[in-house]
Amino acid sequence: MVCFVPREDGKLRYQSDFQMKIAGAESNCAIGLQKLGHSACWISRVGADEFGEFVKRSVRAEGVSISGVTEDGEHRTGVMFKQTLAGNETTVTYYREGSAASFLSPNDISDEQIKGAKILHLTGITPVLSDSCKKAVYRAIELAKGYHVPVSFDPNIRLKLWKGQDHTNLIRDLAGRADYLLMGREEAEYLYGTGESERLQAMLCRQGTVRYLAVKNGSQGAKVCSATELISIPPYPCHCIDPIGAGDAFNAGFLSGILEGKSLEECGMIGAVCGAMATQTRGDIEGYLSKEELARLLSGQKAAYR
């Protein structure tokens, strides 16, 4: 989507000066991975309009392949607005009903896109947008399983997009198909009735098929686990301005660790650092770290500015 971010805090009714940025959980994660030195391809649909061109140019400028993006001549690109009130969490207003992205379908998912991947990352946002989006997500998972490509999934629950419908069973089903399940503590409580890592570990890793589980808990840090490990990841210090996009940055960092053969604890630490740094800007991706910046932070070094 295109995202309009006011330059000042306050209710939208009083704003007249906005910055135009991009937003979207899957594209955020792709950009985060690309910045960390990995190649990424984003699959979606955008309108054949100026906003669609802006989205494509912005994603491509970050090095992410847009070969999987379809230009839709019949439907517009989705839009959202952010509202930031001092001392309160950022809120968003969506204008994406009938958008090009909501018409994503299985026909937009090709074998070539999936079989060459090392990880397929999906979120719970796309499948609730429309029936065709849901089918596209299941098609992508089907192909990934057929080509032995691990699946990463973030429930990314957005109740505003559920429009009064209950998609809990859908999200739980998709989560159960993931090799790497990356979710917030509140999402875990919503989906499974508990945010306790030990219970989630038993339920999803020992009794289920999830290989790695990360339970993100914002300023409280995170818990990461497998069937045999349960590790607490402390929060990384930061000055939070806007938390939106932090979860996607955590995902990118965590998955980059997996791609580099890091231990579960290292994956969690990388995710925590990436997530924390993402909160220090108003845009979703502007605070995302490069591979060099991450290495410097992990080693405790300070940048030389003069």
Results as ranks from 00 to 15, higher is better:
Lys145Val: 03
Lys145Ser: 11
Lys145Glu: 08
Lys145Asp: 01
Gly146Cys: 12
Tyr147Val: 10
Tyr147Phe: 15
Tyr147Ala: 12
His148Gly: 07
His148Met: 11
His148Trp: 12
His148Lys: 15
Val149Ala: 10
Pro150Gln: 15
Pro150His: 15
Phe153Pro: 04
Phe153Glu: 04
Phe153Met: 07
Phe153Leu: 08
Asp154Tyr: 01
Asn156Asp: 14
Leu159Glu: 14
Lys160Tyr: 07
Leu161Glu: 06
Lys163Ala: 14
Gly164Phe: 12
Gln165Asn: 15
Asp166Ser: 09
Asp166Val: 09
His167Gln: 12
Asn169Gly: 06
Leu170Ser: 09
Leu170Thr: 08
Arg172Cys: 13
Arg172Gln: 15
Asp173Glu: 15
Leu174His: 04
Ala175Asp: 10
Gly176Arg: 14
Arg177Val: 08
Ala178Leu: 00
Ala178Asn: 11
Asp179Ile: 14
Asp179Lys: 14
Asp179Ala: 13
Tyr180Arg: 01
Leu181Gly: 08
Leu181Ala: 11
Leu181Asn: 02
Glu186Val: 11
Glu186Pro: 08
Glu186Leu: 11
Ala188Tyr: 02
Glu189Ile: 07
Tyr190Ala: 05
Tyr190His: 12
Tyr192Val: 03
Gly193Asp: 07
Thr194Val: 12
Gly195Ser: 03
Ser197Cys: 12
Leu200Gly: 09
Leu200Phe: 04
Ala202Gln: 10
Met203Arg: 06
Leu204Asn: 02
Cys205Trp: 02
Cys205Ala: 02
Arg206Val: 08
Arg206Tyr: 10
Gln207Glu: 10
Gln207Leu: 07
Gly208Pro: 04
Thr209Pro: 00
Ala214Arg: 03
Ala214Ile: 07
Lys216Met: 11
Asn217Met: 09
Gln220Ile: 07
Gln220Gly: 01
Gly221Ser: 00
Cys225Ala: 13
Ser226Phe: 00
Ser226Ile: 03
Thr228Leu: 10
Thr228Ile: 05
Glu229Trp: 12
Leu230His: 00
Ile233Thr: 05
Pro235Ala: 08
Pro237Thr: 05
Cys238Met: 10
His239Arg: 14
Ile241Cys: 08
Asp242Trp: 03
Pro243Gly: 06
Pro243Leu: 02
Pro243Ser: 08
Pro243Arg: 12
Ile244Pro: 00
Gly245Asn: 04
Gly245Tyr: 02
Gly247Tyr: 05
Gly247Met: 05
Asp248Tyr: 04
Ala249Met: 13
Ala249Tyr: 06
Gly253Glu: 07
Leu255Trp: 08
Leu255Ile: 11
Leu255Cys: 04
